[in-house]
Simulated assay, not measured.
Amino acid sequence: MFELRSRFSRVGVQLLATVIALPFLAALVAMVQGSFAGQGWGNYAKVFATGVVPTYFMNSAIVAGATILIVYVVTMLGAFGFAKLRIRGKEIWFWIILAALAMPEAVLLTPLFVTASTFDIYNELIAVILPLAALQVPFTILLARGFFEGIPTELMDAGRVDGAGTFRVFWHIVLPLTRPIAGAIVVLTLLNAWNAYLLPMLMLNDPSKQVVTLLPSFFTSQYTNDQTGVLAAAVITAVPVIVAYLLLQRSFERGLSAGALK
């Protein structure tokens, strides 16, 4: 990371960061204020009175946890292969994976729906988990590959001299060194999986399988539009992921910095 030596440059960067953050902060403040309009805390009581909050939160936790696990395993193995192993045509495969970054999620909804229906997993959490994981993997592999390339090859060679195979080298030597980038991957995947909206809305019609991002829509229908309930539900939905980010912020920033510098 570059170092800001002069006071003027530090103040300038702080002002720029503040200007960038203000629109997001203003939207957050407006959401919280709107959630207290009218009945105050009663709006939150109204959300919990629906009786679906525990179910929705449990489903979101399952989706987020499973997505993180899949993305972590695939990313670590993929980044290790692309960065450290001699694989024929690996650069071609790497660029094919990166091409998926240009594919908008909305374009994939129809083929994903057809696939879920064909394999009879529609209305199941797995129909959301697998596509979410697949959408995260291209970027996380791009991020992790730079970190893996910075790990000295001499450490791997030393392991091979001691008789370790490729998997043992990866498991015992390389993987323990990837904790910084792993923290960034976990946080990014958690944010994207918890906040997913389009895929759950398409794949999950059963109320017992829906997730927290669909909670605000509980207060809107053809004949009702309870905006205070929508905003209160949105605040409740956002609180866990905000808390998780604050707890993991240091690991997230370290991981991004390490991935960019290696």
Results as ranks from 00 to 15, higher is better:
residue 3 E to K: 12
residue 4 L to G: 06
residue 5 R to F: 07
residue 6 S to K: 13
residue 8 F to R: 15
residue 15 L to A: 13
residue 16 L to C: 07
residue 26 A to R: 05
residue 26 A to Q: 09
residue 27 A to W: 09
residue 27 A to S: 14
residue 27 A to F: 12
residue 30 A to V: 11
residue 31 M to T: 15
residue 31 M to G: 03
residue 31 M to A: 14
residue 33 Q to Y: 10
residue 34 G to D: 08
residue 38 G to N: 12
residue 42 G to P: 05
residue 42 G to M: 10
residue 43 N to C: 03
residue 47 V to E: 03
residue 50 T to L: 11
residue 51 G to K: 09
residue 53 V to P: 00
residue 53 V to E: 03
residue 58 M to H: 09
residue 59 N to S: 11
residue 60 S to D: 05
residue 63 V to R: 05
residue 66 A to E: 10
residue 71 V to K: 09
residue 72 Y to V: 15
residue 74 V to T: 14
residue 75 T to Q: 05
residue 76 M to G: 00
residue 78 G to K: 04
residue 79 A to N: 02
residue 80 F to G: 01
residue 84 K to S: 07
residue 85 L to Y: 05
residue 86 R to D: 12
residue 90 K to G: 08
residue 93 W to K: 04
residue 97 I to N: 09
residue 98 L to S: 07
residue 104 P to L: 11
residue 108 L to M: 15
residue 111 P to Y: 07
residue 112 L to E: 11
residue 113 F to D: 04
residue 115 T to W: 12
residue 116 A to V: 08
residue 122 Y to G: 03
residue 122 Y to V: 13
residue 124 E to Q: 14
residue 129 I to W: 08
residue 130 L to M: 10
residue 133 A to L: 06
residue 133 A to T: 11
residue 134 A to L: 12
residue 139 F to K: 02
residue 142 L to V: 06
residue 143 L to G: 01
residue 145 R to I: 08
residue 146 G to A: 10
residue 150 G to T: 07
residue 151 I to W: 04
residue 152 P to R: 05
residue 153 T to V: 15
residue 153 T to P: 00
residue 153 T to S: 12
residue 157 D to T: 08
residue 159 G to L: 06
residue 162 D to P: 02
residue 165 G to A: 04
residue 168 R to G: 01
residue 169 V to Y: 02
residue 180 P to Q: 05
residue 181 I to L: 04
residue 182 A to M: 11
residue 186 V to G: 00
residue 187 V to S: 00
residue 187 V to C: 01
residue 190 L to D: 00
residue 191 L to C: 01
residue 192 N to E: 04
residue 199 L to R: 08
residue 204 L to K: 04
residue 205 N to M: 10
residue 206 D to W: 03
residue 207 P to I: 10
residue 208 S to L: 11
residue 209 K to D: 01
residue 213 T to D: 01
residue 218 F to E: 12
residue 218 F to V: 13
residue 220 T to S: 09
residue 221 S to L: 02
residue 221 S to W: 02
residue 222 Q to R: 12
residue 227 Q to Y: 13
residue 230 V to E: 05
residue 234 A to P: 04
residue 239 V to Q: 02
residue 241 V to T: 11
residue 241 V to D: 00
residue 242 I to R: 00
residue 244 A to S: 06
residue 248 L to Y: 00
residue 248 L to T: 01
residue 249 Q to E: 15
residue 253 E to N: 05
residue 254 R to Y: 02
residue 260 A to M: 14
